[in-house]
Amino acid sequence: MSALPAGQFFPGQSVLHALDARAKLLGFFLLLAGVVCAASLPAYAVAFAAAGALLALSRLPARAVLAPLKRLWLFFVLIFAMNALFYERGDALWSWWIFRLSKAGMAQGANVAARVALMMVLSGVLTGTTAPMEITGALNALFKPLALLGIPAQEIAMILGIAIQFIPTLLEETDTIRKAQIARGARFESRSLWRRAASLPPLVVPIFLSAFRRADDLATAMEARGYRGAANRTHRRARPLRRADWFALALCTGVCALHVVLRVCVAF
């Protein structure tokens, strides 16, 4: 396992590392909304410029953040091709059998591929500069208003937090169990889909068993330490947002607004 998993956190001292996780999470959602609005060349220019600037600011190793994109190249080719060849609207440039190549389809394909790529870069920057526990804490804070609607927001945040914390452990465990089964003669390298499916139980059963055991132990440990559900749970006082956080949020809001304006004013 020499490739790092997508979403890996890299400790660092950049401006983005120093921002409050709540500001980063909100800013991320704002930029995401902007990306979803993007549908014209100028809009994509803005979006890619913003993503590039964030990547540079984060001082993350660009290769590591962009690696998941590279690993998914086939996926990008596929979504582009599916859209280009099967899009219903627009004039057909060329058609044969069930395929129908159209300009609108190609535009749509490029749209989808660019949006997915942008979302991946943005989330890579977010998770690369924010420790998992900070993200959980931020989710917890941002979910709080939902409690007014009767949604068990704190519990949801707790569940998400625990899930996020367990991901590295489970990945590590999967790796160990895969190796252990290979060492006693299992073959996971097979290219045939049928054989691959048949080779799942030796991996999946032990991992599920271990996950259940861990969940059980954790529940016991939490109860032993006095956890009785999130109601009336106090928190260490959260730091208020600082100037830099507000500034970052304002910038993200600006970019998002720019996207909305571009969407309204510029046709593709």
């Binding site: 465990e173 060492a183 139980p201 059963v205």
Partner: peptide, 20 residues
């Protein structure tokens, strides 16, 4: 590799976790 695996057996730490 398959021949190697047959010649060299490795029992991991906590091998009880690999039973399925």
């Amino acid at each position: 590799r398959a021949a190697l695996r047959a010649r060299v057996g490795l029992v991991f730490q906590y091998p009880e976790c690999q039973l399925f």
